[in-house]
């Protein structure tokens, strides 16, 4: 059985989320028994409460990219991944 107990990811917060969290990002060491996914990572952040609970609540549109590629909720997060959280894009 694989050991998922020590997963460290680099979190990047962009645009509105960077301002709401008062942080451009952080290194998150994450301990779970089951396989870590994008959805479970968001759950873990919501449990912090405050701005994390507000901005990542189900009613708000949040996009996630893992290693610069758009990710879905059930995508697996691996040790060393860069996981970015951002609002829907508004360029052009």
């Amino acid at each position: 059985m694989r050991d998922h107990s020590s997963v460290t990811v680099r979190l990047v917060y962009l645009a509105r989320l960077r301002e709401a969290f008062a942080s451009a990002g952080e290194s998150l060491a994450w301990t779970r028994e089951d396989e870590p996914t994008v959805a479970k990572l968001l759950d873990a952040l919501r449990e912090r409460g405050g701005a994390f609970r507000n901005e990542l609540s189900t009613g708000r549109a949040v996009r996630v990219a893992v290693n610069h590629a758009v990710a879905r909720p059930d995508d697996v997060v691996r040790d060393g991944d860069e996981v970015a959280l951002f609002p829907p894009v508004t360029g052009g």
Binding site: P87, T90, G91
Partner: peptide
């Protein structure tokens, strides 16, 4: 809809992030 850029406006009513 796909390129990660975000716009923030400073208007006569203050700052706001542009919504998609």
């Amino acid at each position: 809809t796909r390129a990660p850029f975000w716009k923030k406006e400073l208007t006569s009513q203050g700052e706001r992030w542009v919504e998609a």
